[in-house]
Amino acid sequence: MDKRKLCIQRRSSLSKTERLLKEKAITNCVLPFLKGKIGIYISIRNEVDVYAFIKDQFDLYIPKMLDDVTIGFYSDHEEKIQGKFSTIEPIGIHEEKDLDVILVPVVGFFKNYRMGYGKGYYDRYLKDSPALKIGVAFDVQEMEFEVKATDVPLDMIITETRILR
């Protein structure tokens, strides 16, 4: 089994009760870093769900696929539709380019690098963003992998038990 599939399997193996407790712990660790305009994702495929805990408390922006290689962030208050890859996306009228913090979904992590689903959308976006980049993951998603030149290091990865910087 490849590393990406193994990380997804580990993440999916958590019970609903375990997941909820761990997500609350992760959210509590994330809260002190949230300020200004926050890029966040709506979780799919058993990703860590911080959105559910903070959706009514902050100025949130969620990603929308603009083309086959690019994402942009749009207000969470916009109407949403199901996008490519079963993601929930805003219809997107005004793209926000000045995010202060971006919470990034993680398939797997190693040191301060994330493994995503393999298409590079987030890496392309993050490489030019001055925002604080925070990956959120469960401890079970940690796995050594080869870091590619195109992988963008995150400022931190927050799990239910620690903050990696």
Rank of each mutant, 00 (worst) to 15 (best):
H77C: 04
V101E: 00
F85G: 04
E89Q: 14
I102S: 01
T87S: 01
E95V: 12
E79N: 11
V106F: 08
V106M: 06
K84T: 04
F85W: 15
E95S: 10
F85C: 00
Q82T: 14
S75Y: 09
S86D: 14
H77I: 06
H77M: 07
S86P: 00
E89S: 11
F85M: 09
F85S: 02
V101L: 09
D76T: 02
S86W: 11
S75Q: 05
V101M: 09
E96V: 13
K84H: 07
V101S: 10
Q82A: 02
K84Y: 14
I93P: 05
D98Q: 05
I102D: 03
E79G: 00
G83H: 10
I91G: 06
L103E: 03
E89H: 01
H77D: 06
E78P: 10
T87M: 14
I91P: 01
I81E: 15
V101N: 10
H77G: 01
E78H: 07
L99F: 02
I93M: 04
G92S: 13
E95P: 05
L103C: 01
V104S: 08
P90V: 06
I81A: 13
E78D: 07
H77K: 14
S86M: 13
E78A: 11
D76Y: 02
E95L: 08
I102Y: 05
P90C: 09
D100N: 15
K97S: 12
T87G: 06
L103P: 02
V104Q: 09
I88V: 12
K97W: 09
Q82C: 13
E95W: 12
K80H: 03
P90E: 11
E96H: 08
K97V: 11
H94K: 11
H94I: 15
V104L: 05
L99W: 10
G83S: 07
